[in-house]
C-alpha cells in the first residue's frame, strides 16, 4: 500500500506545461529517485506531491486522503507534521543559528521551548554537526548547511521527506557524505523519501528510480517492449 500516490497530474504555468499526466507512487520507507533532464518538471512534480502547488488536474493521495482537495491550512499542517523538506539551498532562515533553525518547526507546532531545543540538539551528533549548534546559517559551509537542513526536515519525525537536489550545490565527496548521512537517518526513521536529482550517484542511494521527461513519468522498460 503506497503512502503517497499521484495519478495523472497536470500543471501549467501560463503557456508552459510543466506536468502532463505524471503518475507515481511512493511506498512506505521507500527512497524513490526522480531523475530527468533540466526543465522536465521534476521540481514541479515534487511541489505538487508536497502540497506546495495545487495540480491543475489529477490527484495526489497521501495516507489515503486526497491532498488536492485539502485547504491551504490543512496542507500547511501536513507540511509541519508529516513532511520534511531539503532543497538545494536557501531553505534555512539566514539570521537564525543552526539549532534555532532545527527547533523552528517544533516551536511552530507549539512545542515547549526547552523540549524543542533539546530535541533539536539531539540531531546534531547524528548528522556530524556537533559543535555547530550556535553558528548562524551564513557561517556554515554548504555541506554543513545541508545537513542542518536534513536535521530540520527530520526533527518532526515526518512520514515523507521531499528532497530536491539536496546535494546540487555540493562537491561530489561532500554530496556523498550528506547523502550517506541522510539515507542512514531516514532508514533508521523509516521515512519515505522522494529524491529529485539529476546526479546518478545520488540517485543510486535510492531503492528505485523513475525518469521524468516532458512532464511525464516514463517507464523505460515498457516502451522498449
Amino acid at each position: 500500500m503506497s503512502i503517497l500516490y499521484a495519478n495523472d497530474l497536470t500543471k501549467s504555468f501560463g503557456a508552459t506545461v510543466a506536468l502532463q499526466g505524471a503518475s507515481l507512487s511512493l511506498e512506505p520507507g521507500e527512497i524513490l529517485a526522480v531523475m530527468g533532464p533540466s526543465g522536465s518538471g521534476k521540481s514541479t512534480l515534487l511541489y505538487c506531491l508536497a502540497g506546495i502547488f495545487t495540480p491543475d488536474d489529477g490527484t495526489v493521495t497521501f495516507g489515503g486522503r486526497r491532498m488536492d482537495s485539502l485547504s491551504d491550512r490543512e496542507r500547511t499542517r501536513l507540511r509541519r507534521t508529516a513532511f520534511g523538506f531539503v532543497f538545494q539551498f536557501g531553505q534555512l532562515v539566514p539570521e537564525l543559528t543552526a539549532v534555532d533553525n532545527v527547533a523552528l518547526p517544533l516551536l511552530l507546532s507549539g512545542k515547549r521551548r526547552t523540549a524543542a531545543y533539546e530535541q533539536a540538539r539531539s540531531w546534531f551528533p547524528r548528522l556530524g554537526l556537533t559543535g555547530l549548534e550556535g553558528r548562524r546559517t551564513g557561517e556554515l559551509s554548504g555541506g554543513q548547511a545541508q545537513r542542518v537542513a536534513v536535521a530540520r526536515a527530520l526533527v518532526t519525525g515526518p512520514e515523507v521527506l521531499f528532497a530536491d537536489e539536496p546535494t546540487g550545490a555540493l562537491d561530489s565527496l561532500t554530496g556523498e557524505m550528506v547523502m550517506d548521512l541522510m539515507v542512514d537517518t531516514v532508514r533508521a526513521e523509516h521515512t519515505s523519501v522522494l529524491l529529485v536529482t539529476h546526479d546518478a550517484r545520488v540517485a543510486a542511494h535510492a531503492d528505485r528510480q523513475i525518469t521524468v521527461r516532458d512532464g511525464q513519468v516514463i517507464d523505460a522498460g515498457a516502451r522498449v517492449r
Binding site: 529517485a33 543510486a204 531503492d207 528510480q209 525518469t211 516514463i218 523505460a220 522498460g221 516502451r223 522498449v224
Partner: peptide
C-alpha cells in the same frame, strides 16, 4: 531514446 532509458535503468540498477 527508449534503448538509452533501458540502459540507464540497467546502469542505475548496477549503481545501486
Amino acid at each position: 531514446s527508449a534503448y538509452l532509458d533501458a540502459q540507464r535503468d540497467a546502469h542505475l540498477e548496477r549503481m545501486r
